[in-house]
Nucleic acid binder design. Structure first.
Lengths: 246, 246
DNA sequence: GCTGGGAGAGGCTTA
DNA sequence: TAAGCCTTTCCCAGC
């Protein structure tokens, strides 16, 4: 194909925020936080309206190479088409096409239309509606309370008036979840100067994370949830049941 | 476009492990670990040789919807084209096309050709070659020692014969890096029953992570590295310099 | 081949 | 701009 025409089509696409896809034999080189090279090979290039650039091989969902928030130039040099993308961090992605097999431009909207259900935030809201099934007398005080070192999911008060920090996870809890809860509990304790409980609520927990949690004297409850238009917490299991499994 | 022809092209593409891209107006619905809907809109579909399916909007590197290791069927129903992908976890991704604007099939290799440099592993190797510039008399004992709760980057012995656990990060260290190091130090201490030092080595560290590290009596050194065919550690900064900045 | 565990990077949100 | 954190993750080691 005529490289000059291809080059013009890419530049127009960039200017007009169209989606542009190019197929052909290319070499890719990335220099930045890491460095990588893709030897000469036939691949797919996608340029999008937000000036993100991706190189796809014929496998996997994620692109092999990519750059976001890039400024991209495109020039013909001899019988090669050179694309050079740079971002603010001075990283560079260079794509050299030796042959172009196909190019297409699509004027697609930039819309961000995904409606997601079952996110942690949604489960959090469901939980705030009624904490009592977690433990009788448990009352929510505050949701998404910001601390200096993060945002705590829920703060509640138990039937004895003791403060309870609740960290909710939508998947198996790991070390990170436990240390996160630990930090929040410590901060609340320091701030309010009262002994505070910490509850980790997750569908499952890794064995070693469970051990860490116990060593910190934190509590764990498992739960089931159902995703739908409005996701729901289906049931709570005692951490003791979980412990028995080990 | 003729939906039956499009359907055949997609089915052929799936059978022959070609890459297939389709543009058109579609509705997408996903049910699985989470649930999501994409209302009617014009988007790009990519089907790859590993039977991964992705829906791209005209923004971002990552697809809006996707499924890997999917079995995908494709049928025409009235004036709609329906793709249904399922994976082993019984998740489903349904894509309904109302209009097809464009379809292309490319016989691209499935190759996995990326050559990456500057990975944490590579820096780890570079560091193992010579630890003395970190601190005189520091000698590596064991690399990537597997613990039950993770892989510790490097264990060394300082000039006084004290054990040193070194955790290497290739980007800014956060809470996770600090708590990770803390766990390793505690494990080594318990295992060998000797007082053990912990050193975090990263290009940068978040202020609050630094405070946590100090409260644990761990040490931090910053470093510069250069990525290339064989990545190199360029220089080490004392944590004290870093502290002075705050 | 499947699974459990750990580590990580894009993208979003708030300060 | 920076920090925190969530995620339809990804990879690897072990079985």
């Amino acid at each position: 194909m005529d490289l000059t025409k291809v080059c013009d089509e890419i530049l127009n696409s960039l200017k007009n925020q169209h989606m542009c896809i190019v197929t052909g034999e290319c070499f890719v080189s990335y220099q930045g936080r890491a460095a990588s090279k893709l030897p000469k090979g036939r691949r797919l290039l996608i340029i999008k309206a937000d000036s993100s650039v991706s190189i796809h091989e014929n496998r996997l969902v994620r692109p092999t190479n990519y750059m976001t928030n890039a400024r991209t130039s495109c020039v013909v040099e001899g019988d090669e088409l050179k694309l050079l993308s740079k971002n603010k961090a001075k990283e560079t992605l260079e794509i050299i096409f030796y042959t172009i097999e196909d190019i297409h431009t699509y004027d697609l909207p930039m819309g961000n239309d995904l409606r997601l259900s079952g996110s942690e935030k949604e489960l959090n809201d469901a939980l705030m509606d009624d904490l009592s099934f977690l433990e009788p007398g448990l009352k929510p005080i505050n949701q998404q309370q910001a601390f200096r070192t993060g945002v705590c999911d829920i703060i509640a008060e138990d039937k004895d008036g003791k403060l309870v920090v609740i960290e909710l996870k939508r998947r198996q809890a790991d070390y990170g979840a436990v240390t996160q809860l630990k930090r929040y509990v410590e901060q609340v304790q320091k701030l309010k100067n009262v002994k505070t409980r910490g509850i980790l609520l997750a569908p499952d927990i890794r064995k070693s994370a469970m051990e860490l949690l116990q060593s910190y004297n934190l509590e764990y409850y498992s739960y089931d949830f159902e995703v739908g238009e409005r996701s729901k917490i289906k049931g709570i299991g005692k951490s003791q049941q979980k412990l028995g499994d080990y």
